[in-house]
Design a protein around this nucleic acid. Sequence first.
DNA 1: ATGTTGACGGTTG
DNA 2: TCAACCGCCAACA
Length: 133
Amino acid sequence: MTRKPPAPFYRQVYAIVWKIPPGKVTSYGRIAEMLNNPGAARQVGYAMSALKNRADDPGYVGIPWHRVVNHQGQIVIKGSGEGRLYQAELLREESVEFSKDLQVNLDGHLWEGLLPHEVQAVLEEAGINPKYE
DNA sequence: ATGTTGACGGTTG
DNA sequence: TCAACCGCCAACA
């Protein structure tokens, strides 16, 4: 049962998220900026949310979605706190430190991100036509 | 085509 | 500081 592939912007987001190294985090807004689409931070979050509908879709399992937090380093999954605790657990397994309960210590764990030409290469590698620029 | 929906982020009071 | 607003914009129904 092949499933309809995600929309273009979501695929761009996933291609970037794959590149976040273990033990590092970045924010929804910074991913949007890397994609040359500042202001689309909410859409980045929505792309993460959409992953739970693809738990059985090979190619989208294993995306390190837990390494994406808000610009303050906080875990902001919506719903009853289970999702937040789960994300915190996944990060702790990578020795990410929290200054408070669910507040990531960004000083030591913020991902440097990709340069524009590196983003291009990543999108190219993912076979995404550079439609969105 | 049109209205709704947010795992955001900045501004305000 | 902190909470409440509000602009943002791709997906989706």
